[in-house]
């Protein structure tokens, strides 16, 4: 019983984290048809920005500890927007309309560049920013102890998911965006500024990636390579759910999150195995993902 509860709680926490990481990736793919390999770098940049800013706040300034939460989010927003817009403007803008697989390779090149850029800016020593994490303390529930910060992550993740859904489905801009997704040529004919839409979408996607990194930073040691690890997990989630669908990303996150939690508690040696097995299995049975709609090919 305790194990089941632990699986459920751990699974939800992990699922929320996965959703945070995957949301930006799926938004960018959905609108722009770019499977962005550099998404993990945005995550890393967010994590580093947040870790260094919050670290400075606690050790350099010694300010009110609760302000650090604002700094986490602020660091993510600024770094994500800046890097996202720069990348869109300097590189991707020149590449639109290229083959999807070529875009994968272009963003792979971007990932290689950003990985080293991160090392050049922040060095290779790990950053620890545990304060925002420990500040919230722990709570006991059903005989199990959980960090409240982790539970807070579930709330943040839900809030982001719901807002994204509302923006896409209920606002005027969101509807325009869906028109772009549905048929780019028609959208252009209707006078939608697709270029601007793309720029905004990419910046939002990048910022979501950075936010995921910033919110994760207090719970991990921020060190080189975190982006590279994260991107394959995000791929797994997005592929399982159906690329480009917000609801799909959520479903994928829950499925992968719970499966992993189950593996961790019941058969720890299978942890990594199950994540990618779920991905392969879903692709094998339903290549468009659980919520995807596009068909793969015609013959």
């Amino acid at each position: 019983m305790t194990t089941l509860l632990a699986i459920l709680v751990d699974g939800s926490i992990y699922a929320s984290w996965l959703f945070l990481v995957a949301a930006g990736l799926t938004v960018i793919y959905g609108v722009m048809r770019i499977l962005n390999m550099a998404h993990g770098s945005f995550y890393a940049i967010g994590a580093y920005s947040a870790a260094s800013l919050v670290g400075w706040w606690f050790t350099g300034v010694g300010g009110n500890p609760y302000v650090s939460y604002l700094l986490l989010v602020g660091a993510a927003l600024v770094s994500g927007l800046v890097v996202g817009l720069v990348v869109e403007f300097a590189l991707l803008r020149r590449m639109y309309g290229k083959d999807e697989i070529l875009m994968v390779i272009i963003t792979y090149a971007l990932l290689l560049i950003l990985e080293d850029a991160v090392k050049l800016v922040w060095g290779v020593d790990p950053y620890f920013t545990y304060q925002p994490y420990s500040l919230m303390g722990r709570s006991t529930f059903g005989g199990l102890t959980f960090a409240i910060y982790d539970l807070g992550l579930v709330g943040v993740s839900l809030a982001i998911g719901i807002s994204l859904w509302l923006i896409l489905n209920k606002t005027h801009k969101g509807k325009l965006l869906r028109a772009v997704i549905h048929d780019r040529e028609v959208a252009v004919a209707m006078g939608v500024n697709v270029k601007a839409m793309f720029a905004v979408t990419f910046a939002v996607g990048a910022t979501l990636g950075a936010l995921a990194g910033a919110l994760t930073a207090p719970a991990i040691s921020v060190s080189p390579g975190i982006g590279v690890e994260v991107i394959v997990l995000a791929f797994a989630v997005v592929v399982v759910g159906g690329m480009g669908s917000i609801g799909g990303a959520a479903a994928g996150a829950v499925l992968v999150g719970l499966t992993r939690a189950m593996a961790v508690h019941l058969a720890p040696e299978l942890e990594l195995f199950v994540i990618y097995s779920v991905m392969s299995l879903v692709l094998a049975v339903r290549p468009q993902g659980l919520f995807g709609r596009t068909l793969v090919r015609k013959i």
Partner: peptide, 8 residues
């Protein structure tokens, strides 16, 4: 720390 950047 610039090796991958060169590759990219």
């Amino acid at each position: 720390h610039s090796w991958q950047m060169i590759l990219g």
